[in-house]
């Protein structure tokens, strides 16, 4: 925790993202091996998205990175330091907002903060556009607002690694688009390392610097997305990347290459 200086007077101070190395990481539940000797490096400040079928091990990887579960074998290094126990640099945003209904919005955001909690909580709520809801009860918020409060709670301690476990899965399509833009904006502003687990390939391509596909506990595709931001979901390049990832997940032959290359834009 020493890396985060709580006595800073200005909460907008940027702390750099964490550098993550995953080495020969395996996790078994009983006889079932969920992750099979995985190797992965995430650069400081990078936005990595993990997609895969349900049960492929993507959420298990996130839980191992948070320190909520311990690996069966292998090691995780955060800035070259091996991770033992809960990851103090990480915050998790869950699919269900997991807010405490007996606390008001602001008190949910400041959960676990020791210093300047009111001031920093207000700042985080402002970042997600809910400063005027600080004194509401959680039950008075919509699903999208609850996830924004959960995002504020995750960001208030300025984590160096933000783990997003299908955070937008339960939201309607329009709210999801809003949240994706909000997450992208905050990530650019605060430069934390982001690790997003999702089943939405489009969301992964829209947000991530790199998309990883996990199949049967192993990485089967590691694809850099170099499209300029903000990304245009309607562009041919976007569609091509999306189809490539989907083909990989669904195990389809790459017939698409032929189809796309037939498009005028790809005939150079």
């Amino acid at each position: 925790m020493s890396a985060i200086n709580y006595t800073k007077s200005d909460p907008v101070n940027v702390t750099s993202g964490a550098h993550v190395v995953v080495q020969d990481l395996s996790k078994s539940f009983g006889n079932f091996q969920v992750l099979k000797g995985m190797n992965l490096e995430i650069n400081a400040g990078e936005f990595v998205a993990v997609v895969g079928k349900s049960g492929c091990g993507k959420s298990t990887l996130l839980r191992l990175l948070s320190g909520l579960d311990t690996p069966t074998s292998g090691q995780i290094y955060i800035d070259e330091q091996p991770l033992g126990g809960l990851n103090p640099f990480a915050r998790v945003m869950f699919q269900d907002s997991r807010l405490l209904p007996w606390r008001r919005v602001l008190d949910n955001v400041t959960l676990g903060l020791k210093y300047q909690s009111q001031q920093r909580g207000q700042w985080a709520l402002q970042e997600v556009g809910l400063a005027d809801r600080a004194n509401r009860w959680i039950t008075q918020l919509s699903g999208g607002q609850r996830q924004r409060v959960a995002l504020a709670r995750a960001l208030v301690s300025q984590p160096r690694l933000l783990l997003l476990d299908e955070p937008l899965g339960a939201l309607d399509a329009l709210t999801r688009l809003e949240m994706q833009n909000l997450i992208e904006t905050l990530w650019k502003e605060q430069q934390f390392t982001a690790f997003l687990v999702t089943h939405e390939v489009e969301e992964a391509v829209y947000l991530a610097d790199r998309v990883i596909v996990i199949e049967d506990g192993e990485i089967s595709l590691n694809l850099s997305i170099s499209l300029p931001r903000p990304r245009n979901q309607g562009s041919a390049e976007f569609a091509e990347l999306k189809m490539r990832i989907l083909d990989q997940i669904l195990g389809r032959p790459r017939q698409l290459e032929r189809d796309v290359s037939a498009l005028p834009a790809f005939q150079s």
């Binding site: 909520l68 809960l86 915050r91 998790v92 869950f94 269900d96 997991r98 405490l100 676990g112 709670r153």
Partner: peptide, 13 residues
Amino acid sequence: DPNLLEMGRVYGL
């Protein structure tokens, strides 16, 4: 809800 307890742990309580 055990999920709330898990959240509390991740948030350093």
